[in-house]
Amino acid sequence: MCWAQPALAWGEYAHRLTGSIAWNQLTPAARAEVRRLLRAEPGLQTPECRITSTEDASVWPDCVRGQYRDRFAFSAPWHYQNINVCEPFDVAAKCWNGDCVTAQIPRQQAILADRTRPAHERLQAFAFLVHFVGDMHQPLHLGDKSDLGGNNVRAAFGFKSPERMNLHRIWDSELAERALTEPPAIAPQRITLAQRRAFASGPIDTPARVGLWAREAWDISRNVAYPELQGTPDSCPIPDAARRDLPRGMVTPDYVAKATPAVRDQVTKAGTRIALLVNEALASRPRRR
């Protein structure tokens, strides 16, 4: 398993790819409004974390959490939602006071759509919306076994030992980079109209739609991310005795083969769905309900 070390992580490579996919699918009216909002970037007062494009917006929320930790600590729980894969899916679980990714996506879309707000506030909402839709499509930002979405599950990946790695990081970085750089490359301009319609289908109501999309990611964590990991308990939930001395798991070539299509699909869906939500928010005329 001589796998190349990735240069970029989900927080960079995959997020930027979702941004590219989304930009390619924005309507002319939405593109014009995004360009206008980008001119308000100085109002964010985050010079270490620039937003000059949709791709920049896709990684801005992670950047400001590192560069401006005190100012943006409030947003930390907005990037994920630990919904237990050992219980029936509940989109409202682990979302106290709306501090979770599925609650924040509709909220940020509403702020972006509100043309009475200052442009820099709407630009911040745009960045949050683009980023959070990407985060929600990473299965271990939704699925959980009381292990912080796989952060507490040690796992080896190639030459990287489990002492250095965990399952969440592998899906964020090593696995994502490998899956997304294998040919054929995902070309934003080549996503077909049929794919776009399929990925965007579902309820008109944004919270209901987000719940449906979250369920898809949660299913991948339940059916692939956890049970396919070699060397870890497959029982659900993990027995307390096993949890205290959890065996070190291993990401095998078979695991990668099963996970790769899911990673590629999730990134393509995320970009398409970002465009759907942004197009709705920035339509020249408000969408009737």
Rank of each mutant, 00 (worst) to 15 (best):
A7T: 10
L8R: 07
W10Y: 15
H15W: 04
W23D: 12
A29F: 00
R31E: 04
R35K: 13
R36L: 01
L38N: 03
P42I: 14
Q45R: 13
P47S: 07
S53L: 04
A57F: 05
A57W: 05
C63T: 06
V64S: 06
V64C: 05
G66M: 03
D70K: 07
R71G: 00
A73I: 02
A73G: 04
A73C: 00
N84K: 06
E87N: 04
D90A: 13
W96G: 11
G98C: 09
Q104R: 11
Q104N: 07
P106V: 13
Q109D: 02
L112Y: 02
A113G: 14
R115Q: 05
P118E: 14
R122K: 01
A125L: 08
L129D: 09
L129Q: 10
F132A: 09
G134N: 07
Q138R: 08
L142P: 02
L142W: 12
D144E: 07
L148P: 00
R154L: 06
R154E: 10
A155G: 09
M165H: 06
N166L: 02
R169I: 07
S173W: 13
L175H: 11
A176P: 01
A176V: 08
E177V: 03
P183S: 14
P184F: 09
A185L: 14
A187T: 15
A194N: 09
R197M: 12
S201H: 13
G202P: 13
I204F: 10
T206V: 15
P207Q: 10
A214N: 01
A214H: 03
R215C: 04
E216Q: 09
S221H: 01
E228T: 09
Q230W: 13
D240R: 15
R243N: 08
D245C: 05
L246Q: 02
P247W: 14
R248D: 15
M250D: 15
M250K: 15
P253Q: 11
Y255G: 03
K258F: 08
T260K: 10
P261M: 09
A262F: 12
V263R: 14
D265T: 06
D265Y: 11
K269Q: 14
G271M: 11
T272K: 01
R285C: 02
P286C: 10
R287Y: 10
